[in-house]
Design a protein around this nucleic acid. Sequence first.
DNA 1: AAATGTGATGTAATCGGTTACACAATCTAA
DNA 2: TTAGATTGTGTAACCGATTACATCACATTT
Lengths: 336, 336
Amino acid sequence: MVTIKDVAKEAGVSVATVSRVLNGTDRVRNETVDAVQKAIEKLNYHPNFLGRTLRRLETMKILVVLPTISNQFYSRVVRGIQTVAMQNGYHVMLVTTENDTEAETEYIEMVRRRLLDGIIFLFSSLTGEQIGRLSEECPVVVASETIPGLSGVSSVTIDNRRAGYDAAGFLLRNGCKRIAYISAGRLYGSSFERGAGVKDAVADAGLPAENVLFLDEGLTYKAGRRAAERLFQSSLPDAVFAASDAAAIGLMHACFEKGIQPGKDISVMGFDNNPIAEYFNPALTTVAQPQKEIGLQAMQLLLRKIHDPASPPVEIRLPHRLIIRESVRLLDKEIV
Amino acid sequence: MVTIKDVAKEAGVSVATVSRVLNGTDRVRNETVDAVQKAIEKLNYHPNFLGRTLRRLETMKILVVLPTISNQFYSRVVRGIQTVAMQNGYHVMLVTTENDTEAETEYIEMVRRRLLDGIIFLFSSLTGEQIGRLSEECPVVVASETIPGLSGVSSVTIDNRRAGYDAAGFLLRNGCKRIAYISAGRLYGSSFERGAGVKDAVADAGLPAENVLFLDEGLTYKAGRRAAERLFQSSLPDAVFAASDAAAIGLMHACFEKGIQPGKDISVMGFDNNPIAEYFNPALTTVAQPQKEIGLQAMQLLLRKIHDPASPPVEIRLPHRLIIRESVRLLDKEIV
DNA sequence: AAATGTGATGTAATCGGTTACACAATCTAA
DNA sequence: TTAGATTGTGTAACCGATTACATCACATTT
């Protein structure tokens, strides 16, 4: 490997001078600059970041932890993160944990060990306490997901409980009395919160708690299909609300096979406003999160934490939005 | 920050001994090990990777470059890569270029500068020559995408030309004489290859070249919709073949709005066998790539290159598979 | 002419680790 | 008993960069 020493020797100067040319941190005579640059070119030299970051103790790189990249929801959040990162000279690396807790801790070690400057969790299998402790050692932000027991850590999310309340409220106002809710596993706190919101709405409508059926199947197409199979075993609810658009679509697909028309025979609602929601037939009524905005704000909070580790944690709640399409049957009297 | 020196002082030993305890590279007396571990725990010490990798000149991490994470196709390829990587103690980091060439070169610098041990391109805006040069400096593998002018670099793909030929052949055998092909931009060589295969098939069927219409719109839902709008302006072809399932779905959606029934009034075929293909209505006929296998093999090739930089490049072609569902209208006489 | 300032460059310490080598203590074999 | 091997540990060089400080040549000021 070509090192700074080789360049120095080739150019007939000291390593310090080469370093100065590389970083432009100090005045160097023009002829010397030329000689060094010629040597760099001749040897095809590329500075080794390790040496530099070791000395500087910063890497200009941050890590984003997501559960999987097969869920489209995250792509826009990541885009938001990348936008702000790029503006500030930072690079973004992604890692997926794919439910592999051990892998997650491995990656976290990289941040702890200063190979990366900070970390944004869009998901975690760690407990709130663990993340809290981690955040005392290095810059951490949690975004889009709520993690039980988390405190003292900056976060950016929507108000998931409220979003669940609004979604269920919309279904109730349109005549649905019995609602099934397809939720994700226990690691997705946001999905749990939405379920709590559904319960609230049903209670506020004066209906008994039994009118809500929880199906803890997950967020994938398959999860939706599984949920459908369970529903088909007894009398159908008026509406199904899924914690992801994919699950809603999986359910609708199973309905077709049974000859049940979503949007007519049963109302279906998703979450996240995944692009497919608009293209599916029937187009899926869903709840949109400001994904890009979540990413933007998360990265801004992380930058603040990187530059001022003592800065206090901030919790940002962004607004969600109901997107009304065709999969929920509307009562005539309902205006929106 | 707690360093190895602090631990050494706390435990009353030298830094060398602490290092030995950390890495288990040498014999250390049991009591000494205990003392060091106690000190590590007490100080909550985490070794800084930089020092270690600087000395060892290897990071046990590899980089995967993808265009975007909003295309589900890549998630399974990445999963394959991760499987093999994990088995070998490597970690996988992802970066998306989102059509930002500059960002791509930034990440590549990380590999060149030994911050990462190797790189797998699932996409690149670099030319074949550039990647060829890069591969002389560090371990490189190209997977799933074909890059024009690439040589001397290991790669894992399907035979895209053949896949295009097979898809078009299937359409032709089922009575489609005029075929539109929705392709991705010039950076996606695989999509171009598939188009060449379509041309071959049409020529072999004795039909004139005008029977193929190329629509260079892209791979997204929106791209499919744009393609549809262009098609609606003149007489419809018998079939549309899209280089991605998303584009095929975007097109079908536009068809619905026009009252055209895909699978009946027009045949539609996608590519990749995205999970949604199975759930969409009508279910999408498509070409499946062995995504996970592509990832597995790509990582294996990369490992070989990392361990033996002089190993010769290997080009692996994996088989594709037609997945016949409902979006292509079948002639009765066609068995499959 | 002497004192002072300035610009360009080199020397060497440093970042946080790993590891070759040295050395002392202990054990083993002849 | 003693030479030689083994074990455990410390010293210091080293990885590839950055940077505080020193140095020297030359220009400017008094």
